[in-house]
Amino acid sequence: MISLPLVYTVLALVAYTTGFWYAFMHLLAKHKPNNWFMSVIISIGLLLHGYVLHNDMLTANGVNYDVFNLLSFTSGLMLVLSVLYSTYRPVSALNLLGIPVAAIGLICGFAFSQPNQYASTHSIGLDLHIILSLSAYAVLLMATIQAIMMWFQDQELKKKQKRLWVNLLPPFQVMESLLFDMLMTGFIMLTAALLFGFFMVDSFIQQHLAHKTVFSIISWFVYGFLLVGHFKFGWRGQKAIRFTLAGFLLLAIGFIGSKFILEIIIGR
């Protein structure tokens, strides 16, 4: 018997595929896609994606933090934000990146997630801290990808012959404005995650969170410094790209470095 989550997964993938090809064909023909149609079709896919994720992630015993559920969650969130940003900035082309990422995340979450992957200690506050942290990482990863695309776009714009993917992108100034939208969103989420962490975590040393916390705080200062520099002194361009990459590198060292030390060196 075919399960309802399977049906919803297939329907979500159909919606994602329809939205992708609609946007791709219009942009390839240099025609502006209908934002209303794009928003509706992608929103249908996201609602179905959310239902499948809800069944796997939110259980009677708490939140199931299986790695594939988290991948599904973060990929879906990235597409949600991509759609929201495209409602007020001409950046529909970036949905061509967000849609396949969300589709891959959905497939991985549905096919490979395992039950009973819960946090050792459970509370609403701790769950909020974890979800906010994941959300901040997802948004700041989007900003990092955006910064990398801007760097390549800047290099290509200096050449006489531009590649096809550069022609599909919005103007550099629009990409730059979107970068700071992402950075501001991620910075607010990271601030909230850190505040919840300070109130919810009993012992940073015993729970092996000191390394991750220190690098997250340093990263928070880097992003904050960049945002202040942008709005007060007009920092932009290559300086903004370098600060964005440095901030996410610190976050990655905090997260991946903690996992490496605990699981490989200490063996926990």
Results as ranks from 00 to 15, higher is better:
residue 212 K to V: 01
residue 191 T to L: 11
residue 143 A to W: 05
residue 210 A to P: 06
residue 227 L to G: 02
residue 168 L to D: 01
residue 211 H to A: 01
residue 176 E to A: 07
residue 194 L to W: 09
residue 220 W to I: 01
residue 221 F to W: 05
residue 175 M to R: 04
residue 175 M to L: 09
residue 164 L to N: 07
residue 182 M to C: 09
residue 157 L to S: 10
residue 204 F to W: 07
residue 201 V to R: 12
residue 222 V to F: 03
residue 157 L to E: 15
residue 218 I to Q: 02
residue 163 R to Q: 08
residue 229 G to P: 12
residue 176 E to T: 08
residue 156 E to K: 13
residue 206 Q to S: 11
residue 153 Q to C: 09
residue 164 L to A: 05
residue 185 T to G: 05
residue 156 E to L: 10
residue 240 A to N: 01
residue 238 Q to I: 10
residue 199 F to V: 15
residue 198 F to Y: 13
residue 207 Q to P: 03
residue 159 K to N: 13
residue 239 K to R: 15
residue 194 L to N: 12
residue 187 F to M: 10
residue 184 M to T: 12
residue 191 T to N: 12
residue 169 L to F: 04
residue 220 W to K: 05
residue 206 Q to R: 09
residue 198 F to H: 11
residue 190 L to K: 08
residue 224 G to W: 02
residue 213 T to Q: 06
residue 202 D to Q: 11
residue 148 I to H: 06
residue 154 D to C: 03
residue 169 L to Y: 00
residue 158 K to Q: 11
residue 206 Q to I: 07
residue 239 K to L: 05
residue 162 K to M: 10
residue 234 G to P: 13
residue 167 N to F: 05
residue 168 L to N: 03
residue 151 W to V: 05
residue 198 F to R: 11
residue 167 N to V: 09
residue 145 I to F: 13
residue 178 L to I: 12
residue 147 A to D: 00
residue 231 F to C: 02
residue 229 G to K: 09
residue 171 P to I: 05
residue 195 L to E: 02
residue 219 S to N: 11
residue 193 A to Q: 09
residue 167 N to Q: 13
residue 198 F to C: 04
residue 228 V to S: 03
residue 156 E to T: 13
residue 221 F to D: 00
residue 169 L to S: 02
residue 224 G to A: 03
residue 152 F to A: 08
residue 218 I to R: 06
residue 168 L to V: 06
